[in-house]
Amino acid sequence: SSQSQGISSSSTSTMPNSSQSSHSSSGTLSSLETVSTQELYSIPEDQEPEDQEPEEPTPAPWARLWALQDGFANLECVNDNYWFGRDKSCEYCFDEPLLKRTDKYRTYSKKHFRIFREVGPKNSYIAYIEDHSGNGTFVNTELVGKGKRRPLNNNSEIALSLSRNKVFVFFDLTVDDQSVYPKALRDEYIMSKTLGSGACGEVKLAFERKTCKKVAIKIISKRKFAIGSAREADPALNVETEIEILKKLNHPCIIKIKNFFDAEDYYIVLELMEGGELFDKVVGNKRLKEATCKLYFYQMLLAVQYLHENGIIHRDLKPENVLLSSQEEDCLIKITDFGHSKILGETSLMRTLCGTPTYLAPEVLVSVGTAGYNRAVDCWSLGVILFICLSGYPPFSEHRTQVSLKDQITSGKYNFIPEVWAEVSEKALDLVKKLLVVDPKARFTTEEALRHPWLQDEDMKRKFQDLLSEENESTALPQVLAQPSTSRKRPREGEAEGAETTKRPAVCAAVL
């Protein structure tokens, strides 16, 4: 046999249950609850290399294929790409003598399909299967379609040439079993990697079954959420508030809700932002270029202005709740996480202390139980975000031990490091100062900020419009641009040419 590394010779191994799959997660993409704000000051410096380099560890398999027929071997997927077919160049070659004697062998292509993985959001991997055969590759009886790919989820059954000719079961060793999710959700989405997690739940990458488009699904544990919100009269209202707010909003710089499922837990389906959180971008770069800050901040102002015009105060604006559309420097941003939002009543007064301390406005800290506050709290938070983006460190921090965090904020005395700000323009610093004003009545509004000289930049605004146009074009394009080929190089076993392929839609398939 010419099988590559990772293939075992026996096809009769006992199949494990899916609970053996491991679970991976990374930083929070968007969480309903406010958790302790991640610290920006503690960015690790590059460490000196050791005298002796450690040995390379043996790579762990990321997936496993269990053979369902004699003549096929099990495969431990270690590499990122595997070709399957009769050709000797394939990493998994159909060359077992037992297999060659079967009637089905002649229906398999020289290069029938490939399984591979690509880097997705949060640097996690996504597994795909890609059909290159004349007679078809099927996943859970659905045709992939020649020249098309679809994501592979845990426990997928792979069939060759005929939908009933099941050859492998695919085990993704990095994700959960699909069966743990409600059927209504599974009918519409293929669940994938964990993108982030918080005290009350997690955010998962998923794929729409009909279109193969990526989405983010925010899962909120009702049990954990009820415990964490025990002081509230009705904890469920917080989730329902977020859903109702998101459904009503329609702005290019605000995250869109696509679906909602109320089962044992809450499942909020949101558009996916491939670039992750602004927080991670700031930490990764230490600070952002001023031109990049301007492009992002302009969009934040437009989003918050839209919220305020619609009578909504976000109340928890922070870099973790600003998501980026891509890994590119120039990209769209979207505001997310409306769990603490407040729809303005007639009095415009709110007395609930919520939000993240580092970003809270002075009037929030001094008015607990005594007075109210209004939309100006969001403008203060925007000032803190702009400060961080321009400088790479927070204006107020618990680690300045000589003054408490509350006193720093209520006095408006931010930590100004001259040598850092020497590289920032006077106009940018002036806008920061106009937003970090203790008196909410004297603080800049979103309208005033948008009129500030720093943002009178036609090149930046043109760039934003171009990015918007690109997004609109990409969302308007159909996901499947061509029909699967019906040509046949070899006959199917026991049926006429093209008899099955043309009847089945290529579900969740995307043209390369």
Rank of each mutant, 00 (worst) to 15 (best):
H314E: 00
K434C: 07
L302W: 07
G355R: 03
V403I: 12
A496M: 06
V480R: 15
G275I: 01
A303P: 03
V304T: 10
E426P: 07
V283R: 07
R462M: 07
E363P: 03
S325G: 13
F261G: 14
Y266V: 11
L390I: 10
A303E: 00
F260A: 06
I409V: 13
I312R: 04
D457F: 09
K441F: 15
F416P: 06
V364W: 02
I243G: 13
R504K: 05
R488Y: 13
R451G: 12
T370P: 11
R400F: 02
K294R: 08
A376T: 11
Y306D: 10
F260V: 14
D330H: 11
C293V: 06
L278I: 04
A482F: 07
K294D: 08
R375K: 08
I255A: 09
L249V: 05
I409R: 01
A263K: 15
L278R: 03
K434I: 00
L344Y: 15
E495L: 10
T446L: 09
L450T: 06
G383L: 01
Y267E: 11
M300V: 13
E264P: 08
T336H: 00
G339P: 01
E458K: 14
R488N: 10
E277Y: 06
E500S: 14
L272T: 11
P505D: 06
K286W: 07
V511L: 08
Q327P: 13
G276F: 06
L278M: 10
V283H: 07
G311A: 11
V507D: 04
M460Y: 00
A506P: 14
N259C: 08
E309L: 09
L332P: 12
V384I: 10
T358R: 15
F261Q: 10
P362A: 00
E448F: 07
L270R: 01
L365C: 12
T502D: 02
L324D: 00
N259P: 05
K258A: 12
G339V: 02
T292L: 14
Y298A: 11
N415G: 07
W380Q: 02
K489E: 10
K294F: 03
K256Q: 09
G276E: 12
Y298D: 01
M300W: 01
D430E: 07
Y298V: 13
Y306L: 04
V424A: 10
M273E: 14
D280N: 09
E346L: 04
K289S: 08
Y266L: 14
C253N: 07
K427N: 10
V480N: 13
D316V: 02
H314I: 03
S381E: 12
L317Q: 01
K433Y: 02
E471A: 06
F279R: 03
G372S: 14
K342V: 00
T401L: 14
F279I: 07
N285T: 08
R462T: 12
W454R: 03
P357Y: 12
C379M: 10
I335Q: 01
V283N: 05
I257R: 14
L249P: 05
D457C: 11
L295R: 03
D466E: 05
L386P: 02
I312A: 01
H251T: 04
A496T: 12
K286S: 08
G412W: 04
L324C: 10
T352P: 02
P252V: 12
L246C: 00
K247E: 12
R351V: 06
E346R: 10
Q408K: 07
T475N: 02
T347N: 09
S348A: 15
R351G: 13
A376D: 14
Y373S: 02
F260K: 04
N310A: 12
I243E: 14
L324M: 09
V282C: 08
G355P: 00
T446V: 10
S485A: 15
E495G: 03
K463M: 04
S469I: 08
K289F: 11
K433L: 12
D262T: 14
E320S: 00
